[in-house]
Amino acid sequence: MKRTTTSSGLTMSLGIAALVALGATVALGLTLPKTVEQAEYSRLIAIHPGIAWTAYVACTVTALASIAWLLPRTRAAKWDLLAGASAEIGALFTALMLITGSIWGRPTWGVYWVWDARLTLSALLLALLLGYLAIRQVPADPDVRARRSAMAALLALVVVPVNHFAVEWWRTLHQGRSLAQLTPEDSLDGSFLGAMALGFLAMTLVYAWLLVHRVRVARLEEAREETALATAIEERRAEATTLAR
């Protein structure tokens, strides 16, 4: 049977696992108890940290694939495709991180946005990822494009650890790293920790499923471009032959 989509047995299983995990995250997250400090708004803990984590994972995958392309020994077109696919999904998750963070910030901080280190660096990360995707759209020789975008990916990766530790290095409105607060009076309650961990798993599975499909779509796009180019060359040759006669 001719395959008409980028689905396979593996992606189907991955997709189902992602859906189940996401459904469980939403169900658990929305039924979390109200807290003294944040009332019902702490329920956003099930999705926001998981989204942020996945944005970092996507950036790291993009950077590692870019390094694999830059190293002559491992250079292959597949790394460039993987880097581009992961960056697109990374931009989506970074945008969601900013949106859900702002939505959480409004009732708890009183503002949707403030130019503190964590928020500013997150916005910078999104700008760098969008810049990376724009670079990939500039018409150029595939090798030149891959080199340019690989350098841009490495630049974007620098922001990830700085952003992660920003809440400790600078005075920010954003709270400290949830998992780093180990004192008993500050540590997260078990149900919140469980919901957050499930959110991490669900978002990672969603990312993995999207990534597999995005890489396959990128391969199909590339194959179509090559076919279109070959057809155009063939047509020009045929025209030249007709004119020569």
């Binding site: 956003l44 989506l92 999207l210 779509v217 199909l220 796009e221």
Partner: peptide, 30 residues
């Protein structure tokens, strides 16, 4: 609770929209 629903709603709608776009594109190209 409006903010919580907005956070969950926007996240799920965005992820679903991107997944549908991806599957449609793959069907068109495949």
């Amino acid at each position: 609770m409006g903010y919580v629903w907005a956070g969950y709603g926007i996240t799920l709608a965005t992820l679903a929209a991107y997944a549908v776009w991806l599957l449609r594109r793959s069907r068109r190209l495949g």
